[in-house]
Write a protein that binds this DNA or RNA. Structure first.
Length: 737
DNA sequence: TGAGGTTTATT
DNA sequence: ATAAACCTC
C-alpha cells in the first residue's frame, strides 16, 4: 500500500464523525472524479465538500494558456461539472488575480477547516501552491495535498546521495525497479454532499475561457475532440483495442491514427495516467505471449508515458528548465535573433514543405504529431539558430495539449541541452525525415494545398523542380510558395560555426564557470534540502495541528520536498548545483549581457501577401496594425505603458512590413510577460491566437532569453549581431536561392 | 553462422 | 555522438 493508499489516513474511523465539517476541494489539472486522491480524501474527511475551480491566469505570467488550451479547459470543466452533478454536488467557480486570494475568501465564506488538492510540478505551481499553504497555515487551516498525477513522486526516485538523476535512462530503470507499484487507481466516490446554497460562484461561461471572437476558430475543434473524462476513457478504449498492438511499428506515421491522442486529456487530468498505465500494462501482460508486437508496443507506450513522468521530475528538481538550459553550455549559443525568420517559421513560410505543413497544422488545428513537432522544433533551433525559448512559447500558445513540463523537456532535448540528447551540433536530416514521415507527400498536400499538385519527386524540395514541373503544378516560387529561407548548406555551416563558439566557451569557462555536464557534478543540489525526503507518500500536511498520525513524518518530509522545490523555483540563480561560488563571475558576465527579448510586430501581411496561407486573415489584421500604429501598443509595462516600442519602430521595405525591434525591450516588456496586441484582459479571453483577428504573425511571444551571452538586436538593420559570425546579417533579407 | 556495415533512436 | 537493432555476405 503506497501512494493513494495513504489518503486513507485522512479517513475517519468507521462510525466516527469526519474530522472536518467543511473541506475545500481545489481542482486544477485533475479534472476528474475517478482516481482522484484529493477528492476521495475530502469525501472521507469532511461532512461537507466544496469543489472549487479558480481561474487566475495572470499568475501564470507569460504562460497563460492559449486559445485551444482554453477551449479545452472550458469543455473539460463543463464535463466535470456534469460528473459532479451526477454525484450530487456542483462546482464553485471563482475568478481572481491569484488563486490564493480566492481560496482565502472561500475559506472565510464557507468556514472550511481544510483545503485538499492534488500536486502540480511546474515551476509556477510549485511557488503558488507553497504560498497557498503558507496562507492556510496562517489562517490555521489544514492543507493537504496528494499525488494525483504521477506513478511516483519526484523525490521517490533518486540517485545515490539523494540527488536527482539527470538522464532518462537511469530515471526509467529506477522507476521500473521500484520496490512497490504505482498507486492503484481509486474509485469514483459514491456520492458527494451538495454545496451549501449560500456559497455562490460564477457560471462557467462568465469565466471567459472562450471569447466570442474565438468561436469561429474553435468550431473545427468540436469535430476532432471530446474533452472530458468520458471522451478520454472512450479514446483510451478505442486506442487499446485498435491501435496499441501496432503502436511500436506505427507511431512514426504522421497521420493522426497512429498515436493515442490522449495528451490533452492527460494534461488536464481528465483521465489518470495511472489508470492508463495499468490498462496498458494489463493488456501487455495478457497478450504479450501472443506476439512480440504486443510486448514491444505496450513497453513502448508506457515509455512514452515515462517521458511525461520524467518531464515533471525534471521540472520539480530543476524548476527553471522552461526558460534556461539544463546544461549551461548553451549560454554561449550565438542565436540569430531574426524576427523575419521567426515569423516565417510561425506562419509556415520557411520554404521547407514538411516544416511549413507542420507549422500550419499546428496553427490551424492546435495539434501536431510528435514527430512533426520534433521536425519543426529542430528546424527552428538548428536551421534558423533561433532560441528554443521562442519556439517553446509559440508551441505553448498554439498547442491544444500545451504542457509546460513536457515542452521544457522536449525543447531542451531538441536543442541539445540535456545530458542524454543529441549534441547541439547535430542537425536533423530534413530530406530523410520527409521521406520517412511523409513518403507520398500526402501530409504536405493536406496542409499546404498550394503544393497539392506537385509530383512526389519534388514535393519536399520544390526549389529543385524544373520550371515546367512547377508550372504544371501551379506553383510560383517566391509568389505562392516561398523559396527556402536558408539553404541546407548555409544552415549547416552556420550551425557548425555556432557549435564551435559554444565549444570554445565551454573550454574556456568550464573550469571555473560551466560544468558541461552538471549531471555528474558531485556538488549538484548541495543547496537543496530535499535530499532527505525519499519516503514514499502522497500525503502532504502543512499547518495541520490536527492529524499527525502515523503518516505525519512522511507527510512532513513531502512538505519539505515541496518547500525546497518552491524555493528552487523562486531562486533565479538556481542551476541545479551549488551556485554561490560562481555568482560573482556570473554577475560580471551579466553586466555585459543585455537581456534579449523581442517584441516584433508585423502588420498587414498574412493572407494578403501569402495566398498560400489559408489560415491567414487576409487584410483583416486590424488589431495587429493598430498595435503598430500606436493605437494600442504591443509593448506594455505596468510602469510605462507603451514606452518601449515607439522609439525603435522600423519599416523594412523588403517585406512591406513594419518591424518593431528593440535592444532593451526586455526591461519594458518582460516583467509584464505579455506583449500581445490586445490588452491583458482581452488576451486572457484569448486575443492570443484568435484567427478571426490576428494570425500567427500577430502572436508575439515574449520570451526572456536569459542565457544568451552577447547577441542583441540591432536597431539599425534589424538583424542579430553575432560576434564571431562573419556574415551576421545574412539572415536579414528574404532569401531567394 | 558471425563479422562487419547500415539504419534507427535517443526527450 | 553513440549504442542498439538490423542488414548482408
Amino acid at each position: 500500500m503506497s501512494g493513494n493508499g495513504d489518503a486513507a489516513c485522512a479517513a475517519p474511523q468507521r462510525g466516527a464523525a469526519p474530522p472536518f465539517r467543511t473541506v475545500l476541494l481545489w481542482f486544477r489539472r485533475d479534472l476528474r472524479v475517478s482516481d482522484n486522491p484529493a477528492l476521495i480524501a475530502a469525501v472521507q474527511a469532511a461532512t461537507s465538500v466544496v469543489p472549487v475551480y479558480v481561474w487566475a491566469p495572470e499568475e501564470e505570467g507569460q504562460f497563460q494558456p492559449g486559445r485551444c488550451s482554453r477551449w479545452w479547459l472550458h469543455h473539460s470543466l463543463k464535463a466535470l461539472e456534469k460528473d459532479l452533478q451526477a454525484l450530487g454536488t456542483s462546482m464553485v467557480y471563482r475568478r481572481a488575480p491569484e488563486s490564493r486570494i480566492a481560496l482565502i475568501q472561500l475559506v472565510e465564506e464557507t468556514g472550511a477547516q481544510a483545503v485538499f488538492f492534488n500536486h502540480l510540478y511546474d515551476p509556477i505551481s510549485l511557488v503558488r501552491d507553497n504560498e497557498v499553504k503558507a496562507a492556510m497555515l496562517g489562517m490555521n487551516v489544514h492543507c493537504q495535498s496528494f499525488n494525483g498525477d504521477l506513478l511516483y513522486e519526484p523525490w521517490e526516485v533518486l540517485a545515490a546521495g539523494g540527488r536527482p538523476v539527470t538522464s532518462f535512462a537511469s530515471f526509467w530503470s529506477r522507476l521500473q525497479d521500484m520496490p512497490y507499484p504505482p498507486p492503484i487507481p481509486l474509485p469514483v466516490p459514491a456520492a458527494i454532499s451538495a454545496v451549501p446554497p449560500e456559497i455562490v460562484g460564477l457560471g462557467l461561461d462568465s469565466l471567459g475561457l472562450m471569447s466570442p471572437e474565438e468561436q469561429q476558430s474553435n468550431q473545427q475543434l468540436y469535430h476532432s475532440w471530446t474533452p472530458g473524462g468520458k471522451g478520454a476513457h472512450a479514446l483510451l478504449e478505442k486506442f487499446v483495442a485498435d491501435r496499441l498492438r501496432n503502436f511500436s511499428k506505427q507511431r512514426a506515421k504522421t497521420d493522426r491514427e497512429s498515436t493515442s491522442t490522449l495528451s490533452p486529456h492527460v494534461h488536464f487530468g481528465e483521465i489518470s495516467n495511472r489508470h492508463i498505465y495499468y490498462v496498458v500494462k494489463r493488456q501487455g501482460a495478457k497478450l504479450g505471449s501472443m506476439g512480440g508486437e504486443w510486448r514491444d508496443s505496450t513497453a513502448d507506450f508506457v515509455r512514452q508515458m515515462g517521458y511525461r513522468e520524467y518531464a515533471r521530475y525534471l521540472s520539480f528538481h530543476f524548476p527553471f528548465t522552461h526558460e534556461r538550459a539544463l546544461l549551461e553550455h548553451l549560454r554561449a549559443a550565438p542565436w540569430n535573433f531574426d524576427q523575419r525568420h521567426f515569423k516565417a517559421w510561425r506562419q509556415g513560410r520557411t520554404g521547407y514543405p514538411l516544416v511549413d505543413a507542420g507549422m500550419r497544422q499546428l496553427w490551424s488545428s492546435g495539434w501536431l504529431h510528435n514527430r512533426i513537432r520534433v521536425v519543426c522544433a529542430s528546424f527552428l533551433v538548428k536551421h534558423l539558430l533561433l532560441p528554443w525559448q521562442w519556439g517553446l512559447k509559440h508551441y505553448w500558445d498554439a498547442l491544444l495539449d500545451a504542457d509546460l513540463e513536457c515542452a521544457a523537456l522536449g525543447w531542451q532535448y531538441i536543442s541539445g541541452c540535456l545530458a542524454d540528447a543529441h549534441p547541439f551540433s547535430y542537425m536533423l536530416d530534413l530530406k530523410k525525415e520527409s521521406l520517412r514521415f511523409d513518403p507520398d507527400g500526402n501530409y504536405v498536400r493536406r496542409w499546404l494545398p498550394v503544393l497539392a499538385r506537385m509530383p512526389i519527386k519534388y514535393i519536399h524540395r520544390p526549389w529543385e523542380a524544373p520550371d515546367h514541373v512547377l508550372e504544371d503544378a501551379g506553383v510560383e516560387l517566391g509568389v505562392n510558395y516561398p523559396y527556402p529561407l536558408i539553404s541546407a548548406k548555409e544552415s549547416e555551416a552556420a550551425l557548425a560555426r555556432a557549435a564551435e563558439i559554444i565549444q570554445q566557451s565551454v573550454v574556456s569557462h568550464s573550469s571555473e564557470l560551466i560544468p558541461f555536464r552538471p549531471a555528474s557534478d558531485p556538488s549538484a543540489l548541495r543547496n537543496s534540502n530535499d535530499a532527505s525526503a525519499p519516503t514514499p507518500s502522497s500525503v502532504d500536511m502543512v499547518g495541520g495541528k490536527r492529524r499527525r498520525g502515523r503518516n505525519g513524518e512522511a507527510a512532513a518530509k513531502t512538505a519539505g520536498a515541496f518547500q525546497a522545490a518552491a524555493a528552487r523555483a523562486r531562486n533565479p540563480e538556481y542551476r541545479g548545483y551549488d551556485h554561490a561560488e560562481r555568482t560573482a563571475h556570473l554577475a560580471g558576465e551579466a553586466a555585459q549581457v543585455p537581456q534579449v527579448s523581442f517584441a516584433g510586430r508585423l502588420a498587414g501581411e498574412d493572407g494578403s501577401t501569402d495566398p498560400g496561407l489559408s489560415n491567414g486573415a487576409a487584410g483583416g489584421n486590424a488589431a495587429a496594425a493598430a498595435a503598430c500604429n500606436g493605437t494600442s501598443n504591443p509593448c506594455r509595462s505596468a510602469a510605462a505603458p507603451g514606452a518601449a516600442c515607439s522609439e525603435v519602430q522600423r519599416t523594412d521595405p523588403t517585406l512591406s512590413d513594419e518591424v518593431v525591434v528593440s535592444n532593451n525591450i526586455s526591461t519594458a516588456c518582460i516583467g509584464h510577460g505579455d506583449t500581445n496586441a490586445t490588452s491583458g484582459a482581452q488576451r486572457v479571453r484569448g486575443g492570443a491566437q484568435d484567427r478571426s483577428a490576428p494570425g500567427p504573425d500577430a502572436e508575439v511571444p515574449s520570451v526572456e532569453v536569459v542565457e544568451a551571452v552577447v547577441p542583441c538586436m540591432s536597431g539599425d538593420n534589424n538583424h542579430a549581431v553575432v560576434p564571431g559570425k562573419p556574415d551576421a546579417g545574412s539572415g536579414s533579407k528574404p532569401r531567394c536561392l
